[in-house]
Design a protein around this nucleic acid. Structure first.
Length: 315
DNA sequence: TGTTGATACCGCCATG
DNA sequence: ACCATGGCGGTATCAA
């Protein structure tokens, strides 16, 4: 999967950094990963805040790429080069995936690919966006929108949430969660913009991260928090504390979240019975699984499978 | 659906 | 004084 990250003059470094961190960082721990490069349509060196100059690969079309990331875009009324617009439209028509962060949705909207679709951007630009692109259905209560190979995200770290969503679709829940953890962020937010994660820092050294990885690989077994604490080489009390500090949730909460992710995967991609899925995901009984599933997703597992299961989407 | 025994969570405090 | 740790135990939550 080849990824182009679009840069331009006066680009925003934070969002560029997010894109690079998400897609361009080498991740030798995975068998498959993206091949990403930062590209530009401009011939001249690019200037960014702080007197930084950026040299990136200059291209004329997005042929050969599978995904285009637009980390941001000027929101003041700069006219967009026709060649760039055409290249993006052509890219979309040939099945490429388009992702924008923050103000990047302005460029997407400019191509008219967002017309009659839902979209979002940083709330700071909401009014401007709505006024300039009335044919786009602006949503202000989401972190990101990803639909039909086009995605855009709201301000700041919502970029990472969208990125993780894409990674999840490409490589699965467990890889996405690993990336999230390596990014030192709580795994996934899917609610409104009001959700904040305070100080999600994970200490790099110790067995802590390794314990979480191990747990993900052993979800089918009964995992007590005490056992995890032992594996992480710390007292139960310290483990609880570290967990809250790093993930902003309790161990048990995280565990059932991981298990439910696994359940979703199995519902989507297998024809295992609910009973078997309960077994493989560590819920033990289908009753238990149903209760947990409905609690979190407001839908029963079988309903979920009807909507997203293997018979409906062979994709 | 309700009961109950088990586990989890987290404030509090002592310790190094 | 500060900080991280971890034991204790009351309450909340969970699974059978």
């Amino acid at each position: 999967m080849r990824v182009a990250i679009l840069s331009y003059d006066q680009l925003a470094l934070f969002e560029l950094g997010c894109a690079v961190e998400l897609f361009a960082l080498a991740r030798p721990e995975f068998e498959q990963w993206y091949e990403a490069e930062v590209v530009t349509f401009d011939d001249a060196p690019l200037n960014a805040t702080g007197g930084i100059q950026i040299m990136s690969k200059c291209i004329k079309s997005f042929a050969g790429y599978d995904m285009l990331v637009i980390p941001s875009w000027p929101t003041d009324d700069a006219s967009v080069a026709k060649s760039l617009l055409h290249a993006i439209v052509k890219f979309a028509q040939s099945g490429g995936r388009l992702i924008s962060f923050c103000s990047g949705s302005f460029l997407l909207a400019e191509t008219e690919l967002l017309n009659d679709r839902k979209a979002t951007t940083h709330w700071r630009y909401a009014e401007r966006f709505k006024k300039r692109y009335p044919r786009v259905q602006y949503c202000d209560d989401v972190l990101y929108i990803y639909d039909q190979k086009i995605g855009c995200s709201a301000g700041s770290s919502a970029a990472i949430d969208l990125g993780l969503e894409v990674i999840r679709q490409d490589f699965g829940h467990s890889v996405a969660n690993t990336v999230a953890r390596r990014l030192i962020l709580a795994a996934h937010r899917d609610g409104g913009q009001s959700q904040f994660v305070e100080t999600p820092m994970v200490e790099k050294h110790s067995h802590f991260a390794a314990t979480l990885d191990w747990a993900i690989e052993h979800l089918a077994e009964p995992l007590s928090v005490d056992a995890l604490a032992v594996r992480a080489c710390m007292s139960r009390r310290t483990f609880d504390r570290k967990f809250r500090a790093a993930m902003n949730m309790s161990p048990k909460e995280w565990l059932s979240q991981q298990r439910l992710f696994l359940v979703k995967q199995l519902l989507e991609n297998s024809i295992l019975s609910i009973e078997d899925i309960a077994q493989q995901s560590g819920f033990k009984t289908s009753l238990n699984l149903r209760n947990n599933f409905k609690e979190r997703f407001n839908i029963s597992p079988s309903q979920y499978r009807q909507q997203f299961g293997p018979c409906v989407t062979p994709n």
